[in-house]
């Protein structure tokens, strides 16, 4: 295997590598995923474990109007959302979708269970006026939404708040660690979409080397291919080799046109008359043994066999210029 052949094979492989690298580069996934989910509730709950899944990422909540987001302890956020029409983000099953589920309603007995005094506190008789003005009204109007969102100051269970108009983007690195995020539309209308930007480590370190090495090998192969097509020898060498490469022509078939042409060339254009054509005797002339008797002084005939031999003897010589022999060889 010559060096040129090796280079041609390497070029072919390099071309394949280059194509593969370019395809991989073109179809390489983004360095972050943006799974999302459509929403149809005015409240969205995102737990701290979801926030922790997207370090350096963001959470984008979309709606048709103002959006307010809060952070709170998970227990508080879940208790608050349990009595409302809320959706919770439960996971990231694919790079395209977020899993969501309605927030389950909490059991009414959950909060008072730890304290014996809790169950009876609403019936406190010390200040009926105060009870009438605060707790019953608050709990009754808060659940269906607008009144809760319309509060100018945020409720005490929320630690921080953020707001936006139409779109609210929260950078996860700036969110408090370990707290649940609750987003709520300011006017009680359903939110429309939530998406998360999650960094993903794309295994693409091999693409650039693949392209580089493929390109280099392809160039090597291209050079080999070009050198194959171009004859770098000198002009004199080309002619000599071309002449030397020509082979001796095969003898002409007896009686063929080529044979007659060659014969005519050998006799210098003098027509040959065979014995059978002798108009005077009709005899076949007898060939003489000695070259000196080849010429018949009386008839001027030339023995056909001799002429043919003479012509055959000249086969090794280069054909005379202007004959058809060169064409036949060609």
């Amino acid at each position: 295997m010559t060096l040129r052949t090796t280079a041609l094979i390497a070029g072919a492989l390099g071309l394949l590598l280059l194509i593969g690298g370019l395809i991989a580069d073109a179809t390489r996934p983004a360095s972050f995923g943006t799974p999302h989910a459509a929403l149809d509730t005015p409240i969205l709950v995102i737990g701290p474990e979801l926030v922790a899944m997207a370090p350096g990422g963001s959470i984008t909540i979309e709606g048709d109007g103002g959006i307010v987001a809060y952070s709170a302890r998970t227990a508080d956020a879940e208790a608050w959302a349990a009595s409302r029409d809320a959706t919770q983000v439960t996971g990231v099953p694919t790079w395209d979708d977020l899993a969501t589920a309605p927030v389950a309603a909490s059991e009414p007995s959950a909060s008072p269970s730890a304290s014996a005094s809790a169950s009876t506190s609403p019936s406190a008789s010390a200040s009926p006026a105060a009870n009438a003005s605060s707790s019953p009204a608050a709990s009754a109007s808060a659940s269906p939404e607008p009144s809760a969102s319309a509060q100018p100051a945020i409720a005490d269970i929320w630690r921080d708040s953020w707001d936006g108009d139409g779109t609210l983007t929260l950078e996860t690195d700036k969110l408090p660690v370990g707290l649940t995020i609750v987003a709520e539309s300011a006017d009680g209308a359903p939110l429309t979409d939530v998406s998360m930007t999650i960094d993903r480590v794309v295994n693409d370190g091999w693409i650039a080397p693949l392209k580089w090495w493929g390109g280099i090998l392809a160039v090597v192969g291209l050079i080999a291919l070009i050198s194959l097509l171009i004859d770098h020898r000198g002009a004199g060498t080309k002619v000599e080799e071309a002449v030397a490469s020509r082979k001796t022509a095969a003898p002409a078939t007896p009686g063929s046109r080529r044979e007659r042409r060659e014969t005519a060339t050998a006799t210098g254009g003098i027509p040959i008359v065979t014995g059978e054509d002798d108009p005077t005797t009709g005899e076949v002339p007898v060939a003489e043994e000695h070259p000196a008797s080849r010429w018949a002084p009386t008839t001027g005939e030339i023995p056909v066999q001799d002429v043919q031999d003479a012509a055959g003897e000249g086969d090794d010589a280069p054909p005379a210029e202007g004959t058809d022999e060169g064409e036949d060889r060609a």
């Binding site: 995923g33 998970t74 707290l179 693409i207």
Partner: peptide
């Protein structure tokens, strides 16, 4: 090409809150 795309990050445990009280100084 499949080798390029990493798997979806696995769910992680919720990190503990830095302030565990019911109300913080901010509140």
């Amino acid at each position: 090409l499949a080798g390029c795309t990493p798997a979806v990050p696995a769910a992680v445990d919720a990190p503990p809150a830095q302030e565990t009280s019911a109300v913080t100084q901010t509140q």
